[in-house]
Design a protein around this nucleic acid. Structure first.
Length: 581
RNA sequence: GCGCCCGUAGCUCAGUCGGAUAGAGCAUCGGAUUCCUAAUCCGGGGGCCACAGGUUCGAAUCCUGUCGGGCGCACCA
């Protein structure tokens, strides 16, 4: 049994050992396929602490009926002193009850591991690159980026807790045409800063006020040197000048959400290093890129469409609707052309890649997956690559949609939102929904009705633990593991809930679904609130029991560990575990 | 027209590798506070898991089709 093994994993191993014994005895055929055997807590707690479907799944292979096989398994399990009962139920489930001692031990394990309780080793030895946000460096972060940012960040720390090495990466699209637009817009604000009346911002330029300080900074830096120079003189300079400032702004927006990336990868640098050229050469060699003409797009009218010959990647070979161009007609790289080279660059330093994208990019998933599969397979090992799509967030205020228009520069920024409702609310709310479902985010609801807001509910549970400990300390009591045998059924219910945490982390990490942690924490908080309230009806059931330091010590110890688990879970989500509300 | 995502209580959503009587919150109705924080707790009512087939010991979950909502569909990113 390894140090980091969960209680559930330990019992899965015990059952596995029983199955092996049955194979030896001849009850089960050798090398039985056990892939579908599960060991998990039953949904209905009255069924016991653990349930396994082993008999039902294996009956066919054993050429017997589930109940008969179950009896054989039960026979073996009953020999374990920590298993107080093993019963056959329903179609052939085996329900186990564990000795109170098992749960006391789990409680001690939480105390011993502390901040590390819930960490797992399932990911040890593999590095995962999580690319998220990657907003264009042309303006501040707005709501469209927020959900992906939070989900990506929570996923990254979830994977860390599962034992992976994680690279948090941001792809800076500093090479495309939109950066030229940014540079021109910044130049306009630069002239404005030098006293020129620039009038209305022309169509096609970025009108946002956030460029005003960039113009001023440019004026200070360059004086009037570039006012009347031809564009080709100043464009590259303004491009990098503006991108640098945009990225500084974005980083500060991300910091407000508690997000910090390890790597900012520049598309321009990638192109300067001729990575796309290398990828193209390899793909051409393997007949995966050819020169061809695409058909006119259907279902959408394109006014200036005309047939052009372009270098095309054969993504249709991988299930895409049509082949995709990797260069534009002017010879420059398309986003896709650079992006496939970028993914190969990421693959050099990681064993698995995950991209977090907005749902509006769903149409490009097939081509990039195809390209990465082809390239990575051709250049050695195929690399596991997952694209997680995060659906749109509809912003509401009191049920009414908040109007946003990027063109007018009128949109809700992340900075606005964090200032209004706070980082913890934003993060937790974004994580209490599975990412592939659309969600509404109502400002009014999220701040005003704090009682129906799960983040406060969870934080309150933690704060209650802390306040109880403070109160105890004032009364000269302290948590103690001396008399944990005084803990009863009410306490065990709570411990069982807490004991699921490591299992939940592993499951969430495997599924790459950080939102499960949020829901788990809600359930744990509910269990704690329920436990706490028992003391309202019966003073003997309080955590601090007058004149009884032994029970109080044990219950305080329990409370302390529940607080620890909540803290660890909130830590994964990047939400603060406050000590008082 | 095609592709991807979603459809579970009046509303917002969970639902573990397919598992036992489908769960929470809000809303609604009824209770708990001289007492460790009531931002909490306990209880009642509320369901054709969009619809129709299929797969199997077993389907909200997997497959096919239909309907409804969202997103996307040359060289933008």
């Amino acid at each position: 049994m390894s140090q980091t093994q969960t209680l559930y994993a330990a019992y899965a191993e015990k059952i596995d050992a029983v199955l092996s014994a049955l194979e030896m005895e001849g009850t089960l055929p050798p090398e039985t396929n056990r892939a579908n055997v599960s060991v998990e807590p039953p949904r209905d707690p009255s069924h016991g602490d653990l349930a396994t479907n082993a008999a039902m799944v294996l009956a066919k292979q054993a050429k017997t009926n589930p109940r008969a096989l179950a009896e054989q398994i039960v026979e073996h399990l009953k020999r374990d002193p920590l298993i107080t009962s093993a019963e056959i139920a329903g179609p052939g489930f085996i329900n186990l009850r564990l000795a109170p001692q098992s749960w006391v031990e789990e409680l001690l394990a939480i105390a011993e591991k502390g901040d590390d309780y819930g960490r797992s080793a399932i990911g040890t030895g593999t590095t995962v690159n999580v690319e998220y946000v990657s907003a264009n460096p042309t303006g501040p972060m707005h709501m469209g980026h927020c959900r992906g940012a939070v989900v990506g960040d929570a996923l990254a720390s979830l994977l860390e807790h599962a034992g992976h090495d994680v690279i948090r990466e941001y792809y800076v699209n500093d090479a495309g045409g939109q950066v030229d637009t940014l540079a021109r817009s910044a130049h306009l604000r630069y002239r404005e800063a030098l006293g020129e009346d620039i009038g209305d911002i022309p169509e096609g330029m970025y009108p946002g006020e956030y460029l005003v300080p960039v113009g001023k900074a440019a004026a200070e830096e360059f004086g009037d040197r570039f006012v009347s120079e031809p564009e080709e003189e100043w464009l590259p300079i303004f491009r990098s000048f503006a991108v640098e400032r945009m990225m500084a702004m974005i980083k500060s927006d991300l910091a407000m959400l508690g997000i910090e990336h390890d790597v900012f990868a520049s598309e321009a640098a990638l192109q300067a290093a001729q990575k796309p050229e290398a990828a193209e050469a390899w793909l051409r060699e393997h007949d995966l890129v050819y020169d061809g003409v695409l058909e006119k797009p259907k279902g959408k009218t394109v006014d200036d469409w005309e047939p052009v010959e372009l270098p095309l990647f054969r993504s249709t070979k991988f299930g895409d609707d049509q082949d995709r161009s990797i260069r534009k007609s002017d010879g420059k790289w398309t986003y896709f052309g650079a992006d496939l080279a970028y993914h190969m660059q990421k693959a050099e330093k990681a064993d698995a890649l995950i991209d977090i994208w907005g749902a509006d990019h769903a149409g490009t998933v097939k081509r990039i997956k195809a390209a990465v599969a082809a390239l990575s397979e051709g250049q050695g090992e195929p690399i596991p690559f997952d694209v997680k799509l995060v659906q749109m967030v509809q912003l509401l205020r009191g049920g009414e949609p908040v109007k946003m228009s990027k063109r007018s520069g009128n949109f809700v920024t992340i900075a606005d939102m964090v200032e209004e409702v706070g980082k913890d609310v934003v993060r937790f709310t974004m994580l209490t929904r599975k990412p592939e479902a659309q969600m509404d985010f109502d400002f009014a609801k999220v701040v005003e009705a704090s009682k129906d807001n799960p983040v406060f509910y969870v934080q309150y549970a933690h704060a209650r633990v802390c306040s109880t400990l403070r109160k105890a300390k004032a009364e000269g009591l302290s948590p103690s593991s001396e008399h944990l045998d005084t803990l009863g059924e009410d306490e065990r219910t709570l411990i069982k809930q807490a004991a699921q945490f490591p299992r939940e982390v592993e499951a969430a990490a495997r599924a790459r679904e950080p939102h499960r942690i949020a829901f788990y924490l809600y359930d744990l908080a509910a269990a704690f609130h329920a436990y706490y309230n028992l003391g309202n009806d019966d003073a003997q059931k309080r955590i601090i029991v007058a004149q009884n330091p032994e029970i109080s010590g044990a219950r305080l110890f329990l409370g302390q560990q529940i607080g620890q688990v909540i803290r660890n879970g909130l830590g994964i989500l990047g939400v603060e575990a406050v000590e008082e509300l």
